Simulated assay, not measured.
Amino acid sequence: MYGVWRSREHFSVPGSSPAATSVDVRALADAARRAGGVVRGPAPVIAERVAGVWQLVFFAEADRLREITRVQGRRYEGVRAGRLRWSSTMRAVPPASETTAPTRDLDASEARTGLELW
C-alpha cells in the first residue's frame, strides 16, 4: 500500500494522513499531478506502508517518480515519529486542515472520478 502527501512537510507532521492511498504507485503520482501540487509548489511525496509504518519512497515530480534515498527518508520519518526536530531547512509546518483531511482510497472505483486531493 502506498500513500501520497502534498509535500515532505505534510508527511513530516506526526500522525498526518495521506491525501490518498493505492496499491498502484503510478496512480498516486498521476493523481498528485492532476491535483496541481507539482506545478504550484514542492513535489508531493509517496510513502509505502511497511510493517505498519510509512516509509518515504518517491518524490512525484512533474515528469517522473524520483527515488527518495533511505538517508533522506529517515530524516523526515524521524520528524514524523517525534525522534527528530523540525529542520530549519524545511518549510513551515502545514495547517492541521491540510494534514488531517480524510484519505481517499484510489482503489475504490468511485474515488477515480472527480478527484481532488488538495
Rank of each mutant, 00 (worst) to 15 (best):
G82K: 13
V71F: 10
S17W: 09
D24N: 15
Q72E: 15
V4A: 05
R104F: 01
S7P: 01
F11R: 09
T100W: 04
V4R: 08
S12F: 08
A96Q: 10
V45P: 01
E48M: 05
S12C: 06
G3C: 06
F11G: 01
A62I: 09
P94R: 11
G36Y: 07
R66Y: 00
G78H: 13
V50C: 00
W86M: 07
W54E: 12
G114R: 10
A20L: 07
E110T: 08
L115R: 11
S109I: 09
S22R: 11
P95S: 03
R34Y: 03
T89H: 12
G114D: 02
E116F: 09
R8E: 05
A35R: 07
A51E: 15
S16A: 15
E98T: 14
D107N: 10
R33L: 15
G3S: 04
D63F: 05
V45R: 04
T89A: 12
G36V: 10
D30A: 15
A62N: 06
R74T: 11
D24G: 03
E9P: 01
L65H: 00
L28Q: 06
A101S: 15
A43D: 13
E48C: 03
L106Y: 03
P95Q: 03
V4E: 02
A19M: 06
A108E: 13
G41E: 05
E48P: 00
R75H: 14
D24Q: 01
T103A: 04
V79H: 13
D24F: 00
V25T: 07
T100E: 14
Q72P: 01
A60L: 07
W118F: 14
G41F: 07
G37F: 13
A92V: 06
R104Y: 02
A51I: 03
E77S: 14
L56F: 09
S17V: 10
V53W: 12
A62M: 09
A32R: 13
S109G: 02
R83N: 03
V53Y: 08
R49P: 00
P94A: 06
D63V: 10
V38C: 09
R75S: 12
R83H: 09
W5A: 04
R8F: 01
A108F: 04
R85A: 15
P18W: 06
T69Y: 05
R8M: 01
Q55V: 15
R70N: 06
A92C: 02
W86H: 08
